[in-house]
Write a protein that binds this DNA or RNA. Structure first.
Length: 293
DNA sequence: CTCCAGGTCGTTG
DNA sequence: CAACGACATGGA
């Protein structure tokens, strides 16, 4: 892999284990927009970034090496050896091997903690397109402008200072429904200092307990925040899709989320988060192809 | 009209 | 502890 700056863009040549369609469509991120095939805009860390890919060449539009090193390198998890992770998972069994093969280019994005917390509270009992819409609405209403790409303005998710001023009623106005009090409660935790540093040195269990203390944050949402916003790669969120694929592949019968989580812990260990993402993308793709939605 | 969505909470057995 | 309905909203 080679990273170089050219004509005001960052070009990443000879990438492996990297597919932007899989990265953005695997359910980990709600703050992006598809412009065309293999051509996306994502909003994170105060910027809007257009990313396109052609084969093993990725283009990060209108950015430079300083910003790449400061933001995008970590955001796209470029320092992690996905080939090694996949080899390790493939050893587990044939089912996970098929999922890894299908979703070969997934990377776990390192997203902002406060945005993950509120976004995944919003996500409960909602479909992904609608979650994206609400994240967009809250950003347009309360966030600052992140940039203009191809004639369209993009807005940052509100920062913690701004979140402090958002009321429960404000959350209702953007159609978050029964999640409004949950979002407000989470906002208060953030305002009172809960941030990434709070989790420094905390075990997975301790970190999860801290998150589930927030009303509206259960096991699933907490695991998503741990995985996508805090770097706990052993977190294994079990949602309806993962439950479905795990039952289909391993249990052959209705199985509780607790049993599934324990099974994943034993089987995938510290790589649980990666395994979960491969499985999630895999089962959803199969469902789409079978016309099940 | 009915059913369900990357769930969680509070209440019942 | 397991099971179950409620919870807002929008789309199929």
């Amino acid at each position: 892999m080679k990273v170089l700056e050219k004509n005001g863009n960052i070009i990443i040549k000879d990438v492996t284990d990297f597919n932007i369609e899989q990265i953005f469509e695997c359910g980990q991120c709600f703050h992006f927009e598809k412009l065309a095939d293999m051509d996306y805009v994502t909003v994170a860390y105060g910027r809007a970034l257009r990313v396109s890919q052609s084969g093993s060449e990725v283009v990060l539009h209108k950015t430079d090496m300083a910003e790449y090193n400061a933001i995008w390198k970590k955001y796209f998890d470029m320092d992690t050896d996905y080939t090694a992770i996949k080899n390790r998972l493939i050893e587990c069994d044939d089912s996970i091997r098929d999922a890894v093969r299908k979703a070969y280019g997934i990377r776990i994005l390192k997203q902002e903690f406060h945005e993950m917390l509120l976004s995944f509270i919003i996500s409960q009992n909602k479909q992904i397109p609608h979650i994206k819409q609400i994240v967009k609405n809250i950003s347009e209403k309360y966030g600052t402008k992140a940039g203009n790409i191809m004639g369209n303005d993009y807005y940052n998710f509100p920062d913690v200072l701004k979140i402090r001023d958002i009321t429960e009623e404000n959350y209702r106005e953007i159609k978050t429904g029964f999640r409004a009090p949950y979002l407000y409660d989470a906002g208060r935790f953030l305002s009172e200092g809960l941030n990434e540093a709070t989790f420094d040195g905390l075990s997975y269990e301790a970190a999860k307990d801290k998150l589930t203390a927030i009303k509206g944050v259960g096991d699933k949402v907490a695991n998503c925040v741990l995985l996508f916003g805090l770097g706990y790669t052993n977190a294994f969120p079990v949602d309806v899709w993962v439950k479905r694929v795990m039952e289909q592949v391993y249990f052959k019968e209705d199985t509780s989320k607790d049993v599934i989580m324990e099974f994943a812990k034993q089987k995938f260990g510290e790589y649980g988060g990666y395994a979960q993402q491969y499985l999630f993308y895999y089962v959803r793709e199969n469902a789409v192809n079978k016309g099940q939605k």
